[in-house]
Simulated assay, not measured.
Amino acid sequence: MSEAGQGGWRPGGGRHVLLAAHTGRHDIVDLARSSAARLARAGITVRVLADEAAELQIEGAEVVAADAEAARGAEIVMVFGGDGTFLRAAELARYSHAALMGVNLGRVGFLAETEPEAVEETLTAIEQCEYSVEKRLAIEVDVLDASGAVVDGTWALNEVSVEKAERSRVLDVVIAIDGRPLTSFGCDGVLFATPTGSTAYAFSAGGPVVWPDLEAILLVPSNAHALFARPLVTSPDSVLSVAVPPDGNRARVSADGRRALDVPDGGRVDVRRAARPVRVARVHPGSFGDRLVAKFGLPVRGFRDARRHDPGQELRPSRNVLMRDVVSLPGDRPGDGGAGPAREEVRGGTADPDA
């Protein structure tokens, strides 16, 4: 779901952008500083978090505590880092009307809007209020004890995992949808994911990729000892539950890999749509399919374009990213009996930056 950008954001009332950065890397700090300077020249007040202010050293920035008030009144929370930094910033933005805009300086960066080389274009879009805002479904979690009383809770943008506390033992669970038991099995855990999080932990556990504009909640068992333990895609209005027996392995909850809760013996975890979505700002046009191709490096060249048609010979010579050399096919070298073009040696290579 999306809406128009904030064109003419609070005319006369001033504009504010909160910066959140991975301050452990000098290149990220430098990029955040230069971006802050440009926003300030455009008359936009820059905020920084108190626990990052010393590392960023942005002159004239408004320093705020990293709490529920940090993003109130801000138009954008601009994130410099990988998906981990983005999820940390989401904890602040969800309490406000601010939209998250990420600059990917990590490995994959599915949540980020732009790459470092396009920062200037992104800053121009912020200055001119030329961006759209997507509303991303988030999930809320209630942890209940054996009597059914709520004893704890949290939320997540990507996923919530109910995991076994002791690695040497299987976690026995009963799965229910909307209060009706569905199945039970032993497992390492159960994942509950949003469409935004479908390309993260849930995808690695065998879950489907779900387009982020679709509203749904995913349930993905992790290493289940059962025949019927396939991923499920449910209504966004459903309540998904996992109950653990009082005499079994203890369980714990992890939300976005950042917040952890213990499940009481014989307790239950309920997952439902959060009342407040997370707002994500978008500048660059392009479909989610394009994002999948770019982030995962998917092969989109069809078989009809292949140079050879026998099995295993459809790819052209390419660099071996592990050995930093060229992999050649029969027919590409003189004397191989083929007429393939000559190949230049490829040297070097770069690794993806850290998230």
Rank of each mutant, 00 (worst) to 15 (best):
L218I: 05
H22F: 13
H309R: 15
G81Y: 01
R272S: 09
G267E: 05
G206D: 01
N320L: 03
G286A: 02
D172H: 13
F86T: 02
G60C: 07
S328H: 15
L219Y: 01
R333P: 04
A53I: 03
L100Y: 09
V220G: 04
G13L: 15
S168E: 06
P212L: 00
A21M: 05
C187I: 02
A118E: 12
A90M: 08
Y95C: 14
D290C: 07
E113F: 04
T85D: 02
A20F: 13
E166D: 14
G348M: 08
N320T: 09
S254D: 05
V253S: 02
G335Q: 07
D262A: 15
T234V: 13
W211Y: 12
G8I: 03
G331D: 13
A93C: 11
G8P: 02
V326Q: 08
L182G: 11
E113S: 10
V244C: 11
G102M: 07
A243L: 04
L105N: 05
V327C: 06
S318Q: 14
D67A: 09
N320P: 06
S161D: 08
R38L: 11
R324D: 13
R319W: 13
V108A: 14
A193K: 00
P299Y: 06
V327D: 15
E59C: 10
V210E: 00
S287C: 03
Q128D: 15
P299T: 12
L171Q: 10
R272D: 09
D27T: 13
T122A: 15
L232H: 01
V63G: 02
I44L: 08
A342V: 15
R33I: 03
R10N: 15
S235D: 11
A226E: 06
Q6T: 15
G267C: 09
G24A: 03
R25M: 10
I175V: 13
K135V: 06
A149N: 15
V119F: 02
P236I: 09
L111A: 10
L137C: 02
T122Q: 10
R273Q: 07
V108Q: 04
G179H: 05
Q313T: 14
L18H: 00
M1G: 15
V263R: 11
L292P: 00
R38E: 08
V108E: 12
A200H: 05
D262Y: 07
S168V: 10
Y201R: 01
A37S: 13
G82C: 06
R250W: 12
R304C: 11
F86P: 01
I28T: 11
A202Q: 01
D213M: 09
R107G: 03
R291G: 03
M1R: 15
L182M: 15
D270I: 04
V150K: 15
R94L: 12
V321W: 12
R308E: 07
A274K: 02
V242N: 04
G248N: 09
G267H: 05
F80P: 05
L100I: 10
V46Q: 00
A226M: 04
P317D: 07
G153T: 10
V209M: 02
G189N: 02
G348T: 07
D51K: 03
P116G: 11
T114K: 06
P11R: 09
W155R: 13
A193R: 00
V79A: 05
V160A: 01
R316C: 12
G179V: 05
A193D: 01
